[in-house]
Design a binder for these strands. Structure first.
Length: 448
RNA sequence: GUGGCUGUAGCUCAGUUGGCAGAGCACCGGGUUGUGGUCCCGGGUGUCGUGGGUUCAAAUCCCAUCAGUCACCCCA
């Protein structure tokens, strides 16, 4: 059998990277719960028709089939696909369990998702999303839209990125679709959705490119295109963007509604997390189910890789003939975030294993003695392993040193007491496994 | 899914007009009847991504494929 090889787009981190990932995931989870979001896990698969209910992302959905079905998956009734985000499964879950849920329903969900796209740095076919949503019945208060960025800011704000100079490592760009749609309506634009898609590409194709797109795909006149661009170029770190929009002289009820909502989001952010959010009226988001506030998140220093966390408000995703469940949510691309940071060597960990203490082995005959010491340490929460062989002590120390294990424990011989050595400083002191305690900073690997 | 670039040791890379696969670091063994790191001696640890083809001869040229990366598409 030939050597196994990686599969494109399906990353497998090494243990030190996985330890960092678990640290980040723990931090995200703790923050989500701190804000009162309840955990949920949905199955990996959804019926294909559910997955395709909104949007036309069909080409990137992975279908599943059994080996028995020799011709592969047949697309039709009952066809299953792997979910490509956590919002569509949530919508399905809410419709299915509406009678058992309390609204507004605040839930978080941290799971793998799959997309059959072409991988590159920061883009994968299998990746983890950490998603929060608030879903209500019939109507959803706008203040929930202001809460989302704060949670994300807290979850990611404290990441120990080497380059942080006191500033937050992220910046959340916020916009409101109602502003765009109201504005487009106010200037009499024929196809608002096409205009949104065109404006969304401002960063990539530039103002002239967008102008061309607006005229060619959205049926805009030269003057309309110019107005759209003027709107898209508005950006402000506070609520002052609203004045800039009004100065464009367009009036429309939906526009006013959107302005009020975005002002509320910005004022709330300024009050609780100064510098976190920026109102950026070019942010449109390709997904067509967003109906209000939309978010994108830039990682400082990695702007060219795009958003590492995004979402928005959707009024119509979860609904049937009788009830409507409007929601707002935002999702962190954990795998993308880590892939970018790993690639830049921006995150490191103090050791490559969880082990804090390596108990040395005097001889193979006395392994039980070392095992007892390890047990005593573990009982008190100190991650401990026993040396794999009774090699010369120099070798045993080197075993620890290679892995970054900070302490080696030497069982006492001939009646002498045990000793523990900090192999970084070389300091070695007498110790008892029943009471010795490492400094708190050494107990677990630290991320830096 | 479409197109471009890249692929040599664990890592970073060198390898001439096609002519016996190399360096630094890392790693392994020894000096050290048992406490590492410095120092000294010794060791190349490799299906040149993989599979075909051309050739007396391929890391080198050609084709395919896989992986990484970039642009598009889309998006975390």
């Amino acid at each position: 059998m030939s050597k196994p090889r990686p599969i494109s787009g399906f990353p497998e981190w090494a243990p030190p990277q996985r330890m960092i990932e678990q640290y980040v995931l723990d931090r995200i989870r703790t923050t989500f719960e701190l804000y009162g979001f309840a955990p949920l896990e949905t199955r990996a698969v959804e019926p294909l028709d559910q997955l395709l209910r909104k949007g036309e992302t069909s080409k990137e959905v992975y279908l599943i089939s059994r080996l028995q079905d020799e011709d592969g998956p047949t697309v039709g009734e009952g066809t299953l696909g792997l979910h490509f985000d956590l919002t569509v499964p949530l919508a399905r879950y809410v419709l299915e369990n509406a009678g058992r849920l309390h609204f507004p329903f605040r839930r978080y969900q941290i799971q793998k998702v799959w997309r059959g796209e072409r991988p590159q740095e920061g883009r994968y076919r299998e990746f983890t999303q950490a998603d929060i949503d608030i879903v209500d019945r019939d109507t959803l208060s706008a203040h929930h839209e202001a809460e989302m960025p704060l949670v994300i800011g807290d979850a990611l704000g404290g990441l120990p990125l080497g380059s942080t100079d006191g500033r937050l490592p992220i910046r959340i760009q916020v916009n409101n679709r109602k502003i765009c749609e109201g504005f487009y309506r106010g200037i009499g634009l024929a196809d608002p959705m096409a205009a949104l898609r065109a404006v969304d590409r401002l960063d990539r194709v530039g103002p002239d490119g967008v102008r061309t797109l607006l005229i060619e795909t959205a049926g805009a006149t030269e003057a309309q295109a110019k107005a759209c661009l003027a709107l898209a170029e508005i950006s402000a770190p506070d609520a002052s963007f609203a004045d800039a929009v009004r100065q464009l002289g367009v009036t429309d009820p939906l526009l006013d509604e959107g302005l009020a909502e975005l002002v509320a989001v910005m004022e709330n952010a300024a009050a609780h997390a100064p510098g976190l959010c920026v109102a950026d009226l070019r942010i449109a988001r390709g997904l067509d189910y967003y109906t209000g506030t939309v978010y994108e998140t830039q990682l400082r220093g990695f702007e060219r890789f795009g958003s590492i966390s995004s979402g928005g408000r959707y009024d119509n995703l979860a609904s049937d003939e009788h009830v409507r469940f409007p929601g707002v949510g935002i999702s962190i691309g954990v795998t993308r975030l880590l892939g970018l940071l790993f690639g830049a060597n921006a995150l490191s960990i103090s050791r490559s294993v969880p082990t804090c203490v390596l108990v040395a082995l005097v001889s193979e005959e006395r392994r039980a003695e070392s095992n007892r010491i390890a047990d005593a340490l573990r009982r008190r929460g100190i991650p401990t392993e026993v040396a794999p062989s009774a090699a010369k002590y120099g070798k045993q120390i080197r075993y620890a040193e290679r892995r970054g294990i900070p302490y080696v424990w030497f069982p006492g011989v001939d009646g002498a007491g045990d000793e523990v050595k900090d192999i970084r400083s070389g300091e070695q002191v007498g110790a008892s496994a029943d009471v010795w305690q490492p400094p708190a900073a050494d107990l677990h690997p630290t991320i830096g």
